[in-house]
């Protein structure tokens, strides 16, 4: 039943989206005053048996891109390269469903941090903006006071920490402090924080900065479970929570009236087998009046220019520095293969 539904969803996505114009937000929603959208999507775990985490994060990546967040405003951190893993029976592909319809590792995936670059240090540096000076702008979170940020984390977690790379972990306190530093520096307007790990809700318990809505796939003491195995690939290929989130998002493409409340209720205990945790006390708006496009979509305000400057005289810029390049072509010649001239010169 679920599979059929899923196929229908895919069909809807494939055939409806290309003909769909921009999404119009109905009046009943509270107006958000954000001016741009960013997404930070992080997969923290390595190794082949964690294939599902890569599939999770790439599926979310694909969804937010379909919703319209441009690649330059998505920071994607993937700590292992499953597509090129020698165990992958279908190299250069990653699937999030045993039916293998959608290759989430399509031809336009822009990974910003990969492999061992996905470390606690880089993650915290990214959030706080304290990156080394030679970091390209594409690897920085250049948000401002009008940015809504979607943060999605997946990997293996415990009570109060999230493991990165099997060697280190970020604690909930460090994460809370990093978000506070972002708030103090006015680097966000609102944050929607999603985490899909075991004991996930422990990661948002220490948050103390305003305007954060957080949700987690499981409460403290619970495990987050994976959804199904692809026997061709041989490992679990997606987590339950993310699976239902994606299903929800696929529906949301066609109808724009989905709210955050609906998103937060996306995975009931009967489906997830773990309890989805929500923390909304820091969030000032009512989630039932916030469209999901405030975080998943992208606002790009466009102003039509109607009055160009009617320039009278064609300006000529004063050339301040003269070009000193000489245009005489240098004659080129081959050197002798054996440097006889050196020997003859010394004789």
């Amino acid at each position: 039943m679920m599979c059929q539904l899923y196929i229908i969803c895919i069909l809807i996505t494939v055939f409806v989206i290309p003909f769909n114009f921009g999404i119009e937000i109905p009046e009943k929603f509270q107006k958000s005053n954000h001016t741009n959208n960013w997404a930070v999507l992080v997969d923290t775990s390595r190794f082949w048996f964690n294939y599902r985490h890569v599939a999770n994060v790439l599926s979310i990546y694909r969804s937010v891109k379909l919703f319209g967040i441009p690649d330059s405003q998505i920071i994607l951190m993937i700590s292992d390269d499953m597509a090129c893993n020698p165990r992958n029976p279908r190299p250069a592909t990653i699937f999030n469903n045993a039916h293998e319809q959608i290759n989430v590792y399509g031809d336009d995936v822009e990974v910003d941090y990969r492999g061992y670059e996905v470390s606690v240090e880089n993650f915290i540096r990214l959030l706080t903006g304290r990156v080394p000076p030679d970091t390209p702008r594409s690897k920085q979170l250049l948000t401002d006071e009008g940015s809504n940020i979607l943060i999605y984390l997946t990997g293996h977690g415990g009570d109060g920490f999230l493991k990165f790379q099997d060697s280190e972990e970020v604690t909930s306190q460090e994460l809370a402090d990093a978000l506070e530093q972002m708030w103090q520096k006015r680097r966000y307007n609102e944050i929607f924080f999603i985490i899909d790990t075991c004991q996930a809700s422990s990661m948002y318990e220490k948050f103390y900065s305003p305007n954060i809505l957080a949700t987690a796939s499981s409460l403290v003491g619970e495990d987050s479970l994976s959804h199904h195995v692809d026997s061709a690939i041989g490992v679990y290929i997606i987590d339950r929570y993310t699976y239902y989130v994606l299903e929800f998002l696929e529906h949301a493409f066609s109808s724009s009236e989905k709210t955050m409340t609906e998103f937060l209720a996306v995975c009931p205990k009967s489906a997830c087998l773990s309890t989805v945790g929500v923390r909304s006390d820091l969030f000032k708006r009512d989630p039932s009046k916030v469209p999901i496009t405030d975080f998943f979509g992208s606002v790009r305000p466009v102003t039509i220019t109607t009055d160009p400057i009617d320039i009278l005289d064609i300006p000529k810029r004063k050339k301040t520095e003269k070009q000193n390049k000489t245009n005489v072509l240098e004659k080129r010649k081959y050197l002798p293969q054996f440097p006889v001239h050196l020997v003859q010169g010394s004789a």
Partner: peptide, 14 residues
């Protein structure tokens, strides 16, 4: 349509 234009920005940016 005007509401199509923001997609052009994304395409250009790439």
């Amino acid at each position: 349509r005007r509401d199509r234009l923001h997609r052009l920005l994304t395409a250009l940016e790439e």
